[in-house]
Amino acid sequence: MHRPGLISIWFFIGVLLLAYGVLIAGAGLYGLVSPPARPVVLGNLHAGIWWGGLLIALGAFYTVRFAPRRQK
């Protein structure tokens, strides 16, 4: 998209992934401190923490890279 002033779709994606990463990693860390009564299969891998971390990294990259101010 080359329209002046239009925020890139990748910025919106970055913001959402960043928020999701924080929520998912936070839930994963909480599960580490306070294990659930009925853990999921392979819960010992703590997928929430590293998948949340991946989302934070992806989200932060896209948020910064496609931030409206940088695009101008």
Binding site: Y20, L23, I24, G26, A27, P36, V40, V41, L42, A47
Partner: peptide, 12 residues
């Protein structure tokens, strides 16, 4: 999904 995904991941 329910087998592998705990809180947060399930929502995703």
């Amino acid at each position: 999904l329910a087998r592998y995904c705990g809180p947060g991941l399930l929502g995703l």
